[in-house]
């Protein structure tokens, strides 16, 4: 434990054996967390008999994966998942940026209160929020892709504002002032001066919220309709076959396929993910 306490880049090549041991330990920890996922991914390539016999060795089969797409609606569920989550998170980040900028620069007396109010939406128990939402969506005919697009956007706004405000606070106001003294407009400052400097924050807000919306199930299940059904709904809905048995092969294949996008995101944008949670205060090595 004392080893990693030193500054991250201080590792000399002398004690290579110790270093190798340390890295192996880290790998073991990571793999321990991954094991249950690995078990699910393995099941995606097993026959249902192999799954129920708890076979550790098996002949891989692509039947599960193929049969996933033989089911009706699966393709449309994947498409809904993609456009609902990506579209709504992009919109959320787009409306959150100006708000975060205003919170950061105007220092309204009610900033803290509003920021808290935004976060407080997360405290409403989902099951409680669903009831009025159901009545409201019924009333205004919003149980369609458009309504869900707005709903998921509203899910993603609070966290985006929080992350982005942190990042914009980290950009000195001198930039704004210098630009404006030189005749730039506020909008120019926002989009041409500040925005480029908080790109990591934008990516971080995007990734974080995407992960949350990607797996949203309760609202989709309770108040969705044809056209907004996403993959989590499809997984829950297609789980039990007509005979009343759970189709484990389907569950494993569908959820493994669905895992590809967020895993790729984490792999590709890992830096931003770690940086994002620092709300712009990164100084050391993440």
């Amino acid at each position: 434990m004392t080893k990693p306490m030193t500054a991250p880049t201080r590792r000399s090549g002398k004690d290579t054996a110790k270093t190798a041991g340390y890295y192996s330990l880290l790998w073991v920890v990571a793999i321990l967390f991954f094991l249950p996922i690995l078990w699910i991914v393995m099941a995606a390539f097993k026959s249902n008999t192999a799954i129920l016999n708890t076979d550790y060795l098996f002949t891989p089969t692509l039947d599960n994966i193929k049969s996933v797409f033989d089911r009706p609606n699966v393709t449309s569920q994947f498409i809904s998942s993609l456009y609902l989550s990506i579209g709504s998170v992009i919109l959320a980040v787009a409306v959150s940026f100006p708000a975060a900028y205003a919170f950061s620069r105007w220092k309204f007396a009610y900033t803290d209160f509003l920021m808290f109010l935004l976060l407080s939406t997360r405290m409403v128990p989902a099951a409680a929020a669903i009831v009025p939402m159901l009545l409201m969506f019924n009333l205004f005919g919003l149980r369609n892709p458009f309504g869900f697009f707005l709903l998921y956007t509203s899910f993603s706004i609070p966290f985006s504002v929080w992350i982005l405000k942190g990042f914009i606070d980290g950009v000195s106001e001198r930039f704004d002032e210098t630009a404006m003294v030189n005749g730039a407009s506020r909008l120019h400052v926002m989009f041409k001066v500040v925005l480029p400097q908080v790109k990591p924050g934008l990516v971080a807000a995007f990734i974080f919220n995407l992960i949350f919306v990607w797996n949203e199930y309760l609202f989709n299940f309770s108040i969705g309709s044809e056209g907004v059904r996403n993959v989590p709904y499809g997984i829950a809905n297609g789980l039990v076959d007509s005979g009343g048995n759970v189709d484990w092969g389907f569950l494993a294949a569908m959820s493994s396929l669905y895992l590809i996008v967020p895993m790729l995101m984490i792999f590709l944008f890992q830096r931003y993910l770690l940086v994002g949670m620092t709300f712009g205060t990164v100084r050391g090595d993440v």
């Binding site: 967390f33 991954f34 099941a43």
Partner: peptide
């Protein structure tokens, strides 16, 4: 390291409805 962290973060991005079932 990047791969190790990706694998370690996997449990939190798996759809809870699917991991619960599994």
């Amino acid at each position: 390291r990047r791969l190790a962290l990706t694998l370690m973060f996997a449990p939190m991005v798996m759809a809870p409805i699917a991991s619960g079932q599994f």
